[in-house]
Design a protein around this nucleic acid. Structure first.
Lengths: 133, 133
DNA sequence: CTGAATCCTCGCGGATACTG
DNA sequence: CAGTATCCGCGAGGATTCAG
């Protein structure tokens, strides 16, 4: 009864994000982080090269994209395929695990996008009642 | 063909997180942010008071929880109910919209938790091959 | 083209103290 | 109990440069 949220079969999982020290919290942050989420989302459509990815994820810097990809690759969510050509060509794609994660992530993303009208209206109401702070 | 990810009916949505200026990106960050995600997850079980929430979301500071709750309330995902008793009692609960969001979020969270074994193994392999560095 | 390395800033977020 | 106010360190992350 200390677990939070509805679990598949009520069974106790060994990992719990709500616990400060649990490694799952770190991975969840890689996945849901500012650039991690968008990167996984972009790769869901298919494999992409570094600069293609950069253009898709509007606003990401080289450094952050590189860093993000490393973290996701290390967690086994993204596969990096370098071809020894010249000029160099590197493709990134989701692993099966990454696809599962991205699917759930996109479900969330799309729902949020689709709810933005409601969110924006809620904000207006909120700002209105508490008008000038 | 500029949209990313599988959309419900292939229709173009007015909001797109992949665009730098889109407000949906901000809301997504509130939802998936370090504390936002855990707060929504904790509230999915039912309404909670401020300090109950603090204990659930292990590691969050008063300031961050307060800030997080404000953002979620403003976006229309969380409802704040203050009772004018003494000592003061304030309950937080999800709005219908918040429940929809939390549901999708928990699906992701639980999947990640359940995949941690695979993630941890992937990390070992990754760190192994690129040993030092 | 695909990055790694470096520098620097800005705001996230923790600690603490105080109020109603 | 339920927060707000203030201070401030530190690391996320942007800009730029360099390398393969």
């Amino acid at each position: 009864m200390t677990t939070t949220g509805m679990r598949p079969e009520g069974q106790e999982l060994p990992f719990n994000v709500f616990a400060k020290a649990c490694p799952s919290r770190g991975t969840l942050e890689h996945v849901t982080g500012r650039w991690g989420a968008l990167t996984l989302g972009a790769l869901y459509e298919g494999s992409l090269r570094f600069n293609e990815l950069r253009r898709r994820v509007d606003g990401v810097s080289e450094k952050m994209l590189s860093q993000t990809l490393h973290a996701l690759e290390r967690d086994g969510l993204v596969l990096r395929e370098a071809q020894p050509t010249n000029p160099p060509r590197v493709d990134y794609e989701l692993t099966p695990l990454g696809r599962e994660v991205a699917e759930r992530l996109l479900s969330l993303i799309h729902y949020v996008e689709g709810s933005m009208d409601a969110v924006l209206r809620a904000r207006e109401r909120y700002d209105e009642t508490r008008g000038a702070r």
